[in-house]
Amino acid sequence: MTNQNVGFKLLAAAFITFIFTAPILWMVLSAFKTINDIYAIPPVWIPDFTYLDNFKLLLSENWEFLLNSVIVTLGATALCMIFALPAAFGLVNFRFRGQEFLADWILSTRMMPPIAAAVPIFIVFNTLGMLDTLPALILVYAGFNLPFAVWVSMSFFRNIPKEVIEAARVEGCTWFQTFRLVALPLAKSGIATVATFVFIFAWNELLLSLFLTSREAKTFPVVISSFSTVTKTYWELISAATIIQILPPVIFTLLMQRHIVSGLTMGAVKN
């Protein structure tokens, strides 16, 4: 490859990257502007980064909803994994009648759009007196992610050589010990991948939260959406809030990156 060629490709890559990141960059800049600066013409390109009033105002009024989001997301991710991992392990390793049917059936529940279940779920939680509570959201998010988590985990457990599982059993392990001491450590990358996806889903979910919460259990995405009102859109607050919103998934993904990359490619070729 000639140098000219490399240069052209770099330029093209930079341009495409710019197109994808421009809205986010603009949003980051807006978060440090007053509403007047945002609408100013000519635009204020570089704001005063010491201007933090947007963040201060946002967090002072909404910190509890941010906390709700953290609790719901971590809770849903943990709950989902606690149920999905043993289920996936069992579906891969146990031989029983209807095994494949059960796996397909679990997947099929994913085919329904979540919003189709919103009204029934609303009625159920209303009856149980659980509307606008964190446990309700945790249950719903974990539940909606279970089929996906089970299926993806299954593919990772399937990648563990059958003999390794059998060796553990001959060596004296119960099924649970086999799961905990052998299968889990070997499926680590896969588990990190699944957990990341569930985390991002739960963290970003808006529709069900809008439906099932009013005040107490409101999550952060609902807060962001509330800044766009019929009469006015608070762009400076939306920008600041969105930065806060995208930070955890970015950090979580960076932490898990090494595992995710090996997780996504694992099993792609026979080793």
Binding site: P161, E163, V164, E166, A167, A168, R169, V170, E171, G172, C173, T174, V182, P185, L186
Partner: peptide, 19 residues
């Protein structure tokens, strides 16, 4: 159960615990 038979098995693929 296999674990209760007091047998040890050696597999063609070795089946060591890689971790």
């Amino acid at each position: 159960k296999p674990s209760a038979r007091g047998l040890a098995m050696v597999f063609q693929s070795y089946a060591l615990f890689p971790h």
